[in-house]
Amino acid sequence: MITIAAVGDVHLDEAMRGQYRERLAGLPDEADALLLAGDLTKHGTVDEGRVVAEEFRDLGVPVIAVLGNHDHHSDAQKEITELMRGEGITVLEGEGTVVDCPGGRLGVAGVKGFGGGFAGKCATEFGERETKDFVRHGREAAEALGEALRGLDADLLVGLTHYAPVKETLTGEPPEIFPFLGNYLLAEALDDSGAALGVHGHAHAGTECGVTAGGVRVRNVALPVLRRPYALYRLDGAGGG
């Protein structure tokens, strides 16, 4: 068995330094890895990125992250990524990583993802340049996720995104904004690559549990949804014990 701890949307800033880390002391006894589903900062500043890097360093388990829209708000996503990597945190954007766990090899591929909407009610690459750019960004993110997942050699595959792959986990959010909360192409990428689990954040008012059309479980781990410091998911690594 492999146990994954996951949380997103911690939205840390200077004022919250140390408060969240306090809750993470038990992680090495509980989980094989901690996944961070983006929106780690409030405004995406370099200073907040430093708080994030220091809050999640040396936790005794591998920490694997994607960034969220807030982490892009100040155009400092590269600096934030570097600060986090400097503290040993794996930051994924269209890449994958494999963690050797006692229960098997855990493969995690991650992208921020983007909006675009859900099958039958989604935006299309048609019309104004701005619309096409919006839709293309969502499609390219999903393609990158699928490619990264398929490139992994592991016993258990997890897709980590900030935006939602399904709309079930958005329940509680106003339906009018669903196209800004997720993109069904992310779910298709999970389905097509044999992933066992999709983990996302972003939808603070959503719900935790959902599933893709292909039966892949999806969990919204946004901190306001969880109401606990992190979620723990225990899964069977096919090749593990």
Binding site: R23, E30, L223, L226, P229, Y230, A231, L232, R234, L235
Partner: peptide, 14 residues
């Protein structure tokens, strides 16, 4: 104000 002090009970995904 959001509460984050809930129990981290684990969910088993078969």
């Amino acid at each position: 104000v959001a509460r984050i002090d809930g129990d981290t009970a684990e969910e088993r995904l078969p």
